[in-house]
Design a protein around this nucleic acid. Structure first.
Lengths: 136, 136
DNA sequence: CTGACTGCAAACGTTTTGCACGGTA
DNA sequence: TACCGTGCAAAACGTTTGCAGTCAG
């Protein structure tokens, strides 16, 4: 469990109970889409409105607490901003796994070949995860 | 200019004038979002409806003629399916460039480290393109 | 000739907004 | 206490659908 109160305040947002529960749920899940987040948050805060979820997701993205991860063939998920990493997406169970890869050689290659200044990289590898491979 | 009539027919779709113009516009642009596509197509086929654009984009995706490219911080674009490649996205001029990178070592590494069967990879490098770097 | 396609309008699901009330700092 | 945040309902937005007419093969 992290100190989400401090996280919010250092990013110029008030630490309301709704925001704390939203962050706890995103943190526990790792990556979560709006619908699942709303369902989960309602379990501990059943009066919360969907508009509040949206407003807070957007506020936290604007204030660099969260980031949106766009995925092929499925809804975007949101995650707390952390160190640079990439994603595995299982097309069978829909699980998302953070992975670390050294992409510096690729990025350097592209920078020089295309004279493109790379500020951000997004990589999603889709396929079948270990668990689903074993289950079938 | 390619033979889009054959492309459509070999994918079990009728070669209507609307579809040919849609494909020509996507081909010429390389990658285009729905709004820009609608604007462009209207220039040569002003009676076309937005519903027809949507229906055809979806039909062509379902029949493996087109693919959707999801991009960070901006709308998805559509492109004609071609050989495997990745994308550069300029955050200044919004241009999208196809790039070729050998990602096999990364994918092999991930397959063995995570026991994940990789079927597809999506990589977007965002930043500033050469033209915009020179202009500023 | 027949099934597939088009264009319109209506419907739909998702996200945003306005506003009065409530809570954080 | 001042301002930010919440919750509700309504609005806006993007996309899909139903249907009658049309066209490609």
């Amino acid at each position: 469990m992290k100190d989400f109160t401090t996280l919010l305040r250092t990013h110029n947002l008030k630490a309301t109970p709704q925001r704390l529960i939203i962050l706890e749920n995103i943190y526990n899940d790792g990556h979560i889409n709006i619908d699942n987040l709303f369902d989960k948050v309602k379990q501990t805060f059943n009066s919360i409105s969907l508009a509040t979820i949206y407003k807070n997701i957007n506020a936290m993205i604007d204030n660099s607490i969260l980031t949106e991860v766009k995925l092929p063939n499925t809804k975007s998920v949101y995650e707390i901003i952390k160190q640079k990493h990439y994603h595995l997406l299982c097309n069978n169970c829909q699980s998302i796994t953070d992975i670390e890869i050294d992409t510096s050689s690729i990025i350097n290659d592209i920078s020089s070949r295309y004279h493109f200044q790379v500020d951000k990289s997004d990589l999603v590898l889709s396929g079948i995860c270990q668990k689903c491979l074993l289950d079938n």
